[in-house]
Structure formats: C-alpha cells, structure tokens
C-alpha cells in the first residue's frame, strides 16, 4: 500500500516537534493518532505539530488533532499546531479549530 504522508519527530528536552507531510486523511488518521498520543505521553511540556508540508486534511485529520489537543491539555501539557497553509489552513479555519489549535496567530 502506498503511503501518501510522512512524519519526522524532533525531541528537544521537554518538548518535541512532530513534522508531518503529504496528505492526511482517514487512511493516515489512526496511525497519526497513535503517534501523537505516544509523543504527548512521553513529552513533559509541549508537543508541536508542524503542518507546513501537509497538502490535504479532512475531518478525520481534524478529529485526530483535536483529540491530541484534549489529551495534552488534560495532562497539563501544551499541544500546538503550526504553519498550516493554503487549503489546509482554510479547512482548519472554516471548521473553527484553528484558533484553539494554533493560538499563535502567525501559525
């Protein structure tokens, strides 16, 4: 099966950056959900998800990000989505999750 997305994890002290690329849809959602849950569990402070190289997201991907956001907050951690652009940013915006996931307006 061809994978249309990739990821990279950079850990630095008590925070980490999960960089995603490609197309994040239902097929990718479950794996990314597990991946984010694990990073949140093992990171003391802040998990950032860099979406700059992501070209497609759907409601499944949004659900995965929101779930990670809720998990992080419930355990006293920060979860921040950064660098969403183009149509990905539009989809996050119209569904009303951009402000919650990317509190920094320059995200």
């Amino acid at each position: 099966m061809i994978h249309h997305w990739r990821h990279r994890i950079d850990r630095d002290g008590d925070s980490c950056i999960v960089t995603l690329s490609g197309e994040i849809d239902m097929a990718a959602g479950e794996v990314i959900a597990q991946l984010l849950a694990q990073e949140i569990n093992t990171t003391a402070s802040t998990v950032r998800v860099d979406l700059e190289a992501v070209t497609f997201i759907d409601s499944c991907a949004i659900g995965v990000l929101v779930e990670a956001y809720r998990t992080a907050r419930a355990t006293g951690r920060h979860f921040i989505v950064t660098a969403a652009r183009g149509h990905v940013r539009k989809v996050l915006g119209v569904t009303g999750v951009l402000t919650a996931l990317s509190p920094d307006t320059s995200a």
């Binding site: 759907d58 409601s59 659900g63 929101v66 956001y69 809720r70 919650a100 996931l101």
Partner: peptide, 9 residues
C-alpha cells in the same frame, strides 16, 4: 464546537 472530536464531515 472546536473541541468536539467528530461531526464535521
């Protein structure tokens, strides 16, 4: 609402 897991499709 933003923190709802589903229902956006």
């Amino acid at each position: 609402p933003a923190e709802t897991l589903g229902g956006r499709g």
